[in-house]
């Protein structure tokens, strides 16, 4: 998808985030996939990810007037998404009547993990296996660790941006990141 730009590209093109948010249609076009990607990796449920992404942009749209451009638009949207993910994780505990993980992204749908379709089946199987292993490993992280991990390694954000998006201090982000990576490495080394 064209709109999947990385964090490095977007600030170079967009100078003033306050200007940028005026054209909200373009904002959605540009950031929808990113937010969706983050939320999906954070909640592991495609339906919930859709809902939360929609909520994220809905909230951003309603409060776009309050955006003062102190941070990049990407960080701002991501902060809304992080809060929504956190709220969702809390509220899910109470909504026991809802079928949990109705549209969970099953790790056994490994054939859908196809980062590159031009590789051989053997390589693809190996890649799928690695992606699946990390995907499963992130499930066992705490919500905050997973958020930090996904922001760092899926969204390519640095510690400062993550600190802004999550409302944590930079030190806390580093500690969470360290623990998340250590836990995932430990998990990956365990025999299946």
């Amino acid at each position: 998808m064209k709109t999947t730009a990385t964090a490095d590209v977007i600030p170079a093109v967009i100078v003033d985030p306050v200007q940028e948010i005026q054209d909200f249609d373009r904002v959605v076009e540009r950031y929808w996939a990113r937010i969706l990607r983050f939320v999906l990796a954070a909640v592991h449920d495609s339906d919930v990810a859709e809902t939360l992404t929609q909520d994220c942009f809905w909230k951003a749209y309603r409060s776009r007037g309050a955006f003062r451009g102190e941070s990049s638009l990407n960080t701002w949207l991501m902060r809304i998404a992080v809060n929504l993910v956190r709220d969702h994780a809390r509220s899910r505990r109470f909504q026991f009547w809802k079928n949990a993980k109705q549209a969970a992204v099953d790790s056994d749908k490994t054939h859908e993990w196809l980062p590159d379709r031009s590789i051989s089946p053997e390589q693809r199987a190996s890649v799928n296996e690695q992606v699946q292993a990390v995907w499963e490993a992130t499930e066992n992280l705490s919500e905050r660790q997973r958020t930090v991990f996904v922001l760092r390694f899926v969204e390519d954000m640095n510690s400062l941006e993550i600190a802004e998006a999550t409302g944590l201090t930079e030190n806390a982000v580093n500690v969470h990141l360290f623990r998340a990576v250590r836990a995932i490495r430990k998990r990956l080394k365990e025999p299946l």
Partner: peptide, 13 residues
């Protein structure tokens, strides 16, 4: 790989 895998998954979903 994880990064590109998640991105691919999100886009196609």
């Amino acid at each position: 790989l994880f990064q590109s895998g998640v991105a691919d998954r999100a886009e196609r979903t």
